[in-house]
């Protein structure tokens, strides 16, 4: 039983990272019908930005304030990068065929990945131990402080995002743009601003995810974004791409699924099972678990 609970804790930790990153995919897809393949690399970039802020700006001080500063500044920087990315790579192709935008996204992914390599080098960089190694043992199930932080902060961010989208006027504008961009424009919504906002939110959430990766795993490489991007992408599809609660649910489920497959079946086959799950979902329920709210589209 304690093995099961431990796997549950493992799965939820990695799942909340997937969920944060998946939100970036799903929000962009919701408005633009575009898979932003560069998102995974933005996540990787944020870990490096965070590391640089720590070493250059904060002078390697370890305190709660330092951690908060790293999170805020990195999210700010990545939000800026997200807006620039949208301006340069996606806005000129807004009216172009969908495929052109996808190719542009793949290109942007390569540019960012190689950009990280040129700026920070090809070597693995080591993230500082910013969160003290504190563990609690609940009858064989060990939970660490960093796991609690990751889980709690992710949940807070996700609930905040959900409330923002569902309860505020700007949130209503985002939902309107999801349904029909042209109609939204006729209703006086500035769709360009909404898209910029989507990139700001998605990139900052991705930045938090990237910093979690750095804080939790400590080793960061320029090409790690691909891996996390892929899993988050699967999580977004699992939950229903374009659907915000779906991305959260998909991320958590994928994290748990991976943990249990690796724990109980075989780590050799974990990826294979993950992709089989993806294929099954696409066959049985192409819109994902929560699905796009198709009815609203009419």
């Amino acid at each position: 039983m304690d093995t099961f609970l431990q796997q549950l804790a493992n799965g939820l930790t990695i799942g909340s990272m997937f969920a944060l990153v998946a939100l970036g995919y799903t929000m962009v897809y919701g408005v633009m019908r575009l898979i932003n393949f560069a998102h995974g690399d933005m996540v990787a970039a944020s870990a490096f930005v965070g590391l640089t802020i720590y070493t250059q700006v904060l002078g390697q001080a370890v305190s709660l304030g330092a951690v908060l500063t790293i999170f805020l500044l990195s999210a700010l920087v990545m939000a800026g990068v997200g807006v620039v990315l949208e301006r340069l790579a996606y806005r000129p192709l807004r009216e172009a065929p969908r495929l052109s935008a996808v190719v542009s996204a793949l290109g942007a992914s390569l540019v960012i990945q190689n950009g990280i390599m040129l700026i920070w080098g090809p070597r693995m960089r080591i993230f500082p131990e910013l969160v003290p190694q504190v563990y609690w043992d609940f009858g064989g199930v060990v939970i660490s402080l960093i796991q609690v932080i990751i889980l709690a902060l992710s949940l807070v961010l996700m609930v905040a995002l959900y409330l923002f989208v569902e309860k505020t006027r700007i949130g209503a504008a985002i939902r309107a743009s999801y349904i029909d961009q042209d109609a939204a424009r006729l209703m006086g919504i500035n769709v360009n601003s909404i898209i910029a906002l989507i990139f700001i939110i998605g990139s900052s959430l991705g930045a938090v995810g990237g910093l979690f990766i750095g804080l939790y795993y400590r080793g960061i490489t320029f090409n790690m974004g691909w891996q996390y991007g892929l899993y988050a992408f699967i999580a977004a599809i699992l939950g229903g791409i374009g659907n915000i609660p779906g991305a959260m649910l998909g991320g958590m489920l994928l994290g748990l699924f991976k943990a249990f497959i690796e724990g109980y079946v075989s780590s050799t086959w974990a990826d294979a099972f993950t992709f089989i799950l993806l294929i099954l979902i696409l066959i049985v329920r192409p819109t994902g678990i929560l699905g796009e709210r198709v009815a609203e589209k009419v």
Binding site: T3, Q6, Q7, I14, K258, A270
Partner: peptide, 11 residues
């Protein structure tokens, strides 16, 4: 490179 080894270690 998969970074998360906790499932295997838990076993």
């Amino acid at each position: 490179d998969s970074q998360n080894f906790t499932p295997v270690l838990t076993n």
